[in-house]
Nucleic acid binder design. Structure first.
Length: 552
DNA sequence: AAGGCATGTTTCC
DNA sequence: TGGAAACCCTGCCT
């Protein structure tokens, strides 16, 4: 049953254009931009001229050598043996968090149905459910379209950001413009059609960008919410930015009082920018005046982060929020009052994201830190328990941007979702972290997308609103994936020029990386060095083609 | 070039 | 309740 393994069937097409004309010209361009980066944090100053964005694979191997003892029992350990993770038998399964088995033998690890849990005690006789079935169901095509999976790296900017990517946003009308925010507060604007056209705005925020939205009334402007406690309103072309809210007008008074902006969405009907903070409050900005309206409303537990906001695409007065108090909540903006949500969706752990389905707005999907994606098939039905729970590895980790499962906005059946996977899989000796496409209506894994050159975890993913394009942020790099295409030789050639490698902090001290020195093995970028590594692994199995997975 | 460690957030007790 | 422990895949620095 249609599990397509979207791994390369042929040689990886992406070649790093090192020392070619195109590449060096790109690096010139690179420099120009990077000179404009403000160096805001002192730690940045101390960076060495050249840092090793080196070979993760070796690292993980190294890990095997220093096993972590995770229980008191002597001899019990956990860690990587090669590319395979071995768990401590005393700990609950790393995937589903249930005791009694290890990750390798987890029942949710079955290849085809990536661990859907059966519906529990659903009340199918609920009248609202009936109404839903009669009135709304007919609008949803019963036959699922054939999924087109963007499974090939089409272009990339390696080490584009100086810190890990935290959020992505496609331009609402210009198909090839991608916004990316990072941990440091910088925002990238990349035209991925003209691959080399990109810029980074470093003075909008001082720390982590958590969410970005384009203005529905002016395509050239976007909002951004940041952990610096501000909401920025920025001109896409010039980077000229104004601050619409600042929750820390008196500056740093210690961690107890420092406020941060997390969730953000726009209610275009009312012309409101909705933003949520780390103290449990919702703030509103009037788009016309660019000023706050009304008082902040407590929508989640006091002093907890409200990480996500989502306005219903059909009924914009319906707001979905989620946060660290283990709840997702549905609100009616017309009668928004603290404690007065329409519904409370309880979770076992922190809820990283909660989204209405993109076209009908009648489904809800949440990503929770208990390694489950939850689906409610109808907001009109029984919301006490989700319609489905899909066990999926997307653990919280301090080094990673929290994972969020995202709908495919183009899938009219509202079932295809994309989400990065935390736990690695042994693909012919290489530990890779695929990006999973899941049919959320049944939990089936539709495709696992990966590239042997990307060995980092990819927690940030977004599907294009109109085209078969996936954008993903992995560590400091951005990737654009498209479906496999017929390859002409011209295409092949072009591909060489589709990967941009940024030498990041190298120039901070006015010193250039050793570009001119005809660097033999100087590829400190992840794409090429990883590629090499994979080759090593391939030779082990005596083939230079196919990185076919050897999973059992 | 292998190893140390800063880092933040959540859960545990 | 607050303080401490845990943390499985970062990335930088020595």
């Amino acid at each position: 049953m249609g599990l397509t393994r979207n791994r390369r069937k042929t040689d990886p097409e992406i070649v790093i254009a090192r020392d070619t004309d195109s590449e060096s010209s790109s690096s010139e361009e690179e420099e120009e931009e990077e000179d404009n980066y403000p160096v805001s944090e002192s730690e940045e100053e101390e960076k060495p001229v050249k840092n090793g964005g080196k070979i993760e694979l070796e690292k993980s191997k190294a890990k095997g050598k220093a096993p972590i003892t995770v229980c008191k029992q002597p001899g019990h350990e956990a860690g990587f043996k090669g590319a395979t993770y071995i768990d401590c038998p005393m700990k609950p399964c790393f995937l589903c968090k249930m005791p009694g088995h290890t990750t390798m033998s987890c029942p949710h690890r079955v290849v085809t149905s990536h661990g859907t849990l059966p519906t529990s005690h659903r009340n199918t006789k609920n009248p609202m459910e009936f109404v839903f079935k009669r009135q709304l169901q007919p609008r949803i095509p019963p036959i699922k379209p054939k999924y087109v999976i963007p499974d090939q790296v089409h272009c990339a900017v390696i080490r584009y950001h100086s810190r890990r990517v935290t959020c992505l946003e496609f331009h609402p009308t210009r198909n090839n413009i991608l916004l990316s925010g990072d941990k440091k507060g910088q925002i990238g604007v990349w035209d991925f059609a003209k691959v080399y056209e990109k810029s980074v705005y470093g003075n909008i925020h001082s720390v982590q960008v958590n969410n970005m939205r384009f203005s529905p009334t002016n395509d050239d402007m976007f909002y951004s919410a940041s952990s610096d406690g501000t909401v920025g309103y920025t001109d896409l072309e010039t980077g000229t930015s104004s601050t619409l809210i600042n929750l820390n007008p008196d500056g740093w008074q210690g961690p107890e009082s420092w406020k941060m902006m997390y969730g953000m969405d726009i209610n275009s009907e009312k012309g409101l920018v909705l933003v949520s903070d780390n103290f449990g409050f919702l703030h509103m900005i009037d788009q016309r005046s660019n000023n706050t309206t009304g008082e902040p409303v407590l929508i989640h537990k006091q002093r907890t982060k409200v990480v996500g906001l989502d306005c219903n695409p059909v009924q914009p007065e319906l707001l979905l929020s989620c946060g660290n108090d283990h709840f997702a909540r549905i609100w009616d903006l017309r009668k928004l009052q603290s404690g007065d949500s329409l519904n409370e969706l309880k979770h076992k752990r922190v809820v990283n994201s909660a989204y209405f389905s993109p076209s009908s707005g009648t489904k809800i999907m949440t990503t929770c830190q208990d390694n489950r994606i939850r689906i409610w098939d109808s907001i009109f039905g029984d919301l006490d328990s989700p319609s489905r729970e899909i066990v999926h590895s997307h653990d919280f980790n301090r080094h990673l941007t929290p994972f969020k499962a995202e709908w495919d906005p183009k899938d009219t059946s509202e079932s295809l979702i994309v989400v990065g996977r935390y736990i690695s899989e042994n693909y012919n000796g290489a530990a890779l972290h695929p990006i999973d496409f899941i049919d959320s209506s049944n939990g089936q894994l539709v495709a696992e997308v990966m590239d042997p050159n990307i060995t980092t975890i990819t927690p940030v993913n977004k599907l294009h609103p109109r085209e078969d394009v996936l954008a993903s942020g992995s560590s400091r790099s951005l990737f654009i994936w498209r479906p496999q295409e017929e390859k002409t030789e011209i295409e092949e050639e072009k591909k060489d020029k589709r990967i941009i490698i940024c030498y990041g902090d190298s120039k901070k001290k006015g010193k250039k990386h050793k570009r001119g020195s005809d660097d033999e093995d100087e590829d400190d970028d992840m794409f090429s060095s990883r590629g090499k590594n994979i080759k090593l692994n391939k030779t082990q199995v005596k083939t230079t083609k196919s990185t076919r997975k050897t999973k059992t």
